[in-house]
Amino acid sequence: MIKIAPSILSADFANLERDIGRISTADYVHVDVMDGMFVPNITIGIPVVRCIRPTTTLPLDVHLMIVKPARYVEEFCDAGADIVTVHVESDTPEGIQSAIDKIHAKGKRAGIVLKPATPAQAAEPFLEQVEMVLVMTVEPGFGGQKFMADQMDKVRTLREWIDQRNPGCELEVDGGVDPETCKVCIEAGANVLVAGSAVYKAADIPARIAQLRG
């Protein structure tokens, strides 16, 4: 089954509990954390994750767009994250390994993220250790960008590797996912789709979530 992870980056932050409730038919709540250094934007942090945790029974899929994430992954786990994904570009391989180990030590699922310019090969050292690989189909940092279809070759490659080496790992796509581009992502092998504005701007959110499942 295709899973949908609406991004609360597109929610109304003055009514966050309400807007998380509106996506109750989804599979994950996608939480974008940006530090203004790894990406040119600042969003939310640990206190907000802690506050939203009691508002939903859905798993929190926390995407860290921050420098040296191993410094903070344990705090995000303690705040209520169920899945924590870190960018391979955000630290040395040793630093990324440390982040993965710390997430697992907290009993949570760990994932790695690849920016558009990062080749699939960057995932290989971690592929057999993680529960999720996230491919960015926009440049991370801002919502509402145009979907980058050229990333589908990377998704296909990663799907092949995952099937061979770590079949339980989920393959997530984030950026520009809508009722049309979702079909391309699913065909390429993604099984988790992050969608922000495509969900929150829909007149009927449950219907849109169902539509995105393909």
Rank of each mutant, 00 (worst) to 15 (best):
A105H: 06
T137S: 14
V133H: 00
P116W: 10
A122S: 14
A110P: 08
E128P: 05
Q121M: 00
A110Y: 07
M136L: 13
V133Y: 01
G111A: 12
E128Q: 15
K102E: 07
D101I: 04
E139N: 15
Q129C: 12
G144I: 14
A122H: 05
K102T: 06
A123E: 07
H104W: 10
I112C: 04
F126I: 03
V133Q: 01
G144L: 13
V130Q: 10
P119F: 06
T137C: 04
F126G: 03
A122R: 06
L127R: 04
P140C: 12
E139F: 13
V133P: 02
E139Q: 15
V135H: 08
K106E: 10
G143Y: 13
A117N: 09
P125H: 00
A110T: 09
A110V: 09
P116L: 10
K106I: 03
M136D: 06
L114A: 01
M136T: 06
A117V: 10
T137M: 04
P119I: 02
K108T: 10
K108H: 10
I103W: 11
Q129P: 04
V113K: 01
T118C: 13
A123D: 06
V133M: 01
Q121I: 00
K106S: 11
I103F: 11
Q121C: 00
P116D: 10
K106M: 12
K115D: 11
P125Y: 00
V138N: 12
P119T: 01
M132P: 00
E124I: 11
L134A: 06
E131G: 10
E124P: 01
A122F: 08
M136C: 07
I103G: 11
P140E: 14
A105N: 08
K115A: 10
T137K: 03
L114S: 03
I103N: 11
E124M: 13
L127M: 08
G143A: 15
K102P: 04
E128Y: 02
V133I: 15
K102N: 08
G144R: 13
A105V: 02
I103R: 12
F142I: 06
M136N: 07
M136Q: 07
A120I: 02
V130A: 13
P125Q: 00
P119H: 05
V113R: 00
I112W: 03
M132R: 07
K102F: 05
A120M: 02
P119Y: 05
P125I: 02
K115R: 14
G141T: 06
M132D: 08
I103E: 11
M136Y: 06
E124H: 06
R109T: 11
G111P: 10
T118M: 09
E139H: 15
Q121P: 00
Q129L: 15
A122M: 11
V133A: 01
V135S: 09
G141P: 07
G141N: 07
A122W: 04
F126E: 05
A123P: 05
G144D: 12
K102L: 14
G143M: 14
K108F: 08
F142E: 06
V130C: 13
L114F: 02
V138H: 12
E131A: 13
V113H: 00
L114K: 02
K115G: 08
P116Y: 09
E131S: 13
M132S: 11
P140L: 12
M132A: 09
K115L: 08
A110I: 08
Q121D: 06
E139C: 09
A105S: 12
A117W: 05
I103V: 15
V133G: 01
P140Q: 13
E124D: 10
I112Y: 03
